[in-house]
Write a protein that binds this DNA or RNA. Sequence first.
DNA 1: TACCGTAGTTCAACCGTGATGAATTCTTCG
DNA 2: CGAAGAATTCATCACGGTTGAACTACGGTA
Lengths: 204, 204
Amino acid sequence: MNSSPRRGRRPGSPDVRAEILAVARARFRREGYDAVTMRSLAAEAGVDAALISYYFGSKAGLFAAVLELTLSPADLLGGLLQGDLETLPQRLIPTLVRTWDNPDTGVPLLAAMRAAASDPGFAAMLRDGIHRQLVERLAERIGGADAHRRAGAFVTQVGGLILTRYVIAAEPLASMTADEIVRALGPALRTALLGPLPTARRTS
Amino acid sequence: MNSSPRRGRRPGSPDVRAEILAVARARFRREGYDAVTMRSLAAEAGVDAALISYYFGSKAGLFAAVLELTLSPADLLGGLLQGDLETLPQRLIPTLVRTWDNPDTGVPLLAAMRAAASDPGFAAMLRDGIHRQLVERLAERIGGADAHRRAGAFVTQVGGLILTRYVIAAEPLASMTADEIVRALGPALRTALLGPLPTARRTS
DNA sequence: TACCGTAGTTCAACCGTGATGAATTCTTCG
DNA sequence: CGAAGAATTCATCACGGTTGAACTACGGTA
């Protein structure tokens, strides 16, 4: 009934919510979603476990908040899309590898992938995010009738890189350098993006 | 003390172990690893929950037994590797799509992927399987200095297809037909496998 | 035949998980 | 100062996988 925005107790100690978020971010990063329990997390943050549900609704809600805080996958693409499409693969791959190899950004991303693999709700979030922020923006940049198909193919290839190198960590990709990956995958990525070279098109 | 292999009670009801395995296979297929509880599974199989631990050690052990029973991913590759490498993509993709679209084989495969994404032990199993049964056999078939790099690139692309279409179900790949996928990904797969067309090789 | 070892089976608990609701403290407004 | 409401604590719930102790039935052995 009262229009004043906040009433009641303000905490003397500043922002418990932020404290939980900070600890959760570090723990999820280091140990993944399942391994982190709400109780241990609350203990480390020095708060009661019930506060996590109070502030974030559930453990999944907390995880979503951490992701939202940490990730902005579309930002990377912005600058890259400005340049020449021909060279997009060799510009994208090093950036991507740097992002995923850096624990600060890579481990949350990996955690997001893992969560999406097990929880249908997270999968839907990731699916929408990929489609809206990556596929459609890329398709717009490509233009033409095949744009969506090519964008989808390109994103698929990038997904393969992430799956193979980071989620499964399968050789030989897991231990390649960024340059080697560019050499190994660059041509295929370019083909996905722009189609086979016109002079050599095959009718199949 | 006694050299005879088995003594003691033979069960009157035939093979409880097999019964558990059959029920587990159906349930895991339909509902995935996490959603199936040992208690409900035991109830459906008409046995005590402790018997699962008794026979399979743990829930993960049961899952591994189900996978071993169901999957033989390398079999597919055998025939395909016989043919021309040039046409491997357009022969592989329809087979792959058929296998993953068919619930009998696809859902266990998907369950295996999901399990590998969350459990490091399963991830190691999958990693070794991919490397030993897919990458190395493909590399051997390709031959030459670049064989491993190309095989790795190829398997990566295929992984991308699986991740995008089946694990995340992201558009536009999720609703393409096999033919459309061949058109969208075929050229890139061919490039990964055989390198860019020689006449158009670029220096950078 | 009587016994005994053991595999198969059951039952009851243990411990740890995320979640919930009532009670309690503290801060701010009227 | 009181009342209201947010922040916090506590006890408890239902459920998960797992464990160990009992109990049962069968086959080999004395």
